[in-house]
Design a protein around this nucleic acid. Structure first.
Lengths: 332, 332
DNA sequence: ATGGTTTGTGTAATCGTGTGCACAATGTAT
DNA sequence: ATACATTGTGCACACGATTACACAAACCAT
């Protein structure tokens, strides 16, 4: 069609071609603005013919509204977050919002990365990563007053947060494991000092305390299969535990493999293993993991709900609480 | 620090504060431009104090250079691509380029999505997805003449592509399986009509043909564990095959589980199963998959190389070819 | 027929930066 | 001391859209 044209055509040029002013071009592309329907049709026809589309960068500058959303994530491949990411991106796209990915995993200077994104005047910020502090995010993005969604309930007017509660589900799971006769518990953390990790651990600490128990051992991995495998070997061999609560599902799978291959112990008879997240892979036949699961769809619904409130300029911070459930497999 | 200020400060305002013109502000932030070093230092100090950062949207409009990169992917969670995505995002961020994710998986109108992204004047486009035709991508993005990277070698001056060659590795794998005495082969496709799927299948078709063999059966999945599981049951039960070549690793894992659980057949003795991609999960102890693997780092190096050539405005399409290798596990 | 409302379009300012050009100030060579 | 190159800064315009305002034309009611 327009095949070879090198440069993108501009509003003013199209105006000349259609015999109108550039203001009228703009109106033709704004759904509800005073313009003759005949004129609009003619303009849209000429526009299609020449492949014209309004320049979103220029529009953003004028509008003070970029329709860009920054997604701060740990890593892209990480299955723990991937399902949520996928869902959210889909929902954003349906609302004509474009996600910019900020990947913290192996980026040396996360703050600089966030500052870079903030210069693009993103309308919203969603923080999935537990590697950035909310306070830093607020300091960097406060100027544009975007929504910032996170697990961490920071008391700040520009932060809306999603809180998750897994206390009850953790209690159910511990109950089952204790009734199965397990006695020595270990907790395998994802990251040492993250807010989400502390929260999750607390659910299980409380559930154990209620029965006069406590964790006999504590290990730190990095949410990866390999770290789950390696730490589990130590926990089982050195600390002689018979139940491992893992910070996420992937580490739990690693731990299960370690138990089976290195020590010849099987779940759930010799040892109990519990994951967290409820990723799809956990339910695969080869894994069949018992896990403290979060409803991903409900979670993303909540995020989108918060974003919509922010779009509607409903003032103040908002907060939504979600409840986790126990998903039973054959590992505990 | 600047704590409460609601609106982002502008270049002109900062100019007033520093007692210079806004042009000088701009120069203070451009590494090599004629400006007194004393003036620059003073401006940068005042800027930091007031939390000023140049507005990237305005700069992009002026520069005709957005530093945005569109990543067209099938899905985010999909492990097949996730590792590449992660690597690429990391490399882009190191070059101060921001990735915009376009997720095709469940988006009804992929073309409209790409058109939306194109209005943001992205500097480059990287197509990982096999769900969009390169011709469509070119039609939509040609105006900004970005680089378009893909497996599909389209003959177009604005497309640079990465070609992958797995013929030799496929030959090695088939050789091993045939020597193991397997006779009835099936191919389990990811998507019916994608370019990449046809390419991969051809490697194995040729390797079989060389030995006077051909696929006895052909099935179509959707790259997911579940589809691998389901289709494998049919292939094994109905078609009595004893070797399944899968379009990716995830389906191969599903197929392996199906063989074991539904039909009680084990790899590699009863049946051979081969994956493709070489994702990290394939090497996990519980999977230990034989797979036709692509070196992810080399692949992303090639993508970045092409992007750099495009940045340097080296004319014409470029092409880089990568060779796959066989990675041996216990499934074939 | 006249005053008032509605409709459609153009003019011009605006969004926040980058940069060519002009010009003053300073430095350098004869 | 004069001519010339260099450095530092401001002015003004461009980038490509949106939109308040003005105004002409058309329509309507009395």
């Amino acid at each position: 069609m327009s095949g070879m044209s090198r440069r993108r055509i501009t509003s003013k040029e199209l105006a000349k071609l259609a015999g109108v002013s550039s203001a009228t071009i703009s109106r033709a592309f704004s759904p509800d603005s005073r313009i003759g329907s005949a004129t609009r049709d003619r303009i849209l026809a000429v526009a299609r013919e020449h492949g014209y589309q309004p320049n979103a960068i220029a529009r953003s500058l004028n509008n003070q509204r970029s329709r860009l959303v920054a997604l701060v994530v740990n890593a892209i491949g990480n299955p723990c977050e991937a399902e949520e990411q996928q869902l959210l991106v889909h929902r954003l796209q349906a609302r004509q919002l474009l996600p910019i990915i900020l990947c913290c995993a192996d980026h040396s200077d996360r703050l600089q990365l966030m500052r870079l994104a903030s210069t693009y005047q993103v309308d919203h910020v969603v923080v999935f990563s537990d590697m950035v502090s909310m306070q830093d995010a607020v300091d960097i993005f406060h100027t544009t007053k975007p929504i910032i969604v996170s697990f961490e309930p920071l008391d700040n007017e520009s932060v809306s947060s999603i809180r998750i509660d897994g206390a009850e589900a953790a209690d159910e799971i511990i109950d089952k494991i204790v009734r199965d006769g397990k006695k020595r518990f270990a907790y395998l953390s994802g990251t040492n000092s993250s807010w989400i990790d502390k929260l999750r651990r607390k659910w299980f600490v409380d559930a154990l305390a209620k029965r006069g128990l406590a964790f006999e051992a504590q290990a730190f991995g990095d949410y990866s299969y390999d770290s789950g495998f390696k730490e589990a070997v130590l926990l089982l061999h050195r600390d002689k535990v018979d139940a491992i609560i893992c910070g996420n599902d992937v580490m739990a799978i690693g731990a299960r493999d370690a138990a089976r291959r290195v020590l010849g112990k099987n779940t759930p008879d010799d040892i109990a293993i519990v994951g967290q997240d409820g990723i799809a892979m956990a339910a695969w036949d080869c894994n069949d993991l018992t896990t403290l699961s979060l409803d991903h769809v409900a979670f993303i619904d909540a995020v989108v709900e918060l974003i919509e409130r922010h779009d509607a300029e409903i003032e103040g911070p908002h907060s939504i609480t979600l409840t986790c459930t126990a998903r039973w497999g054959s590992t505990a």
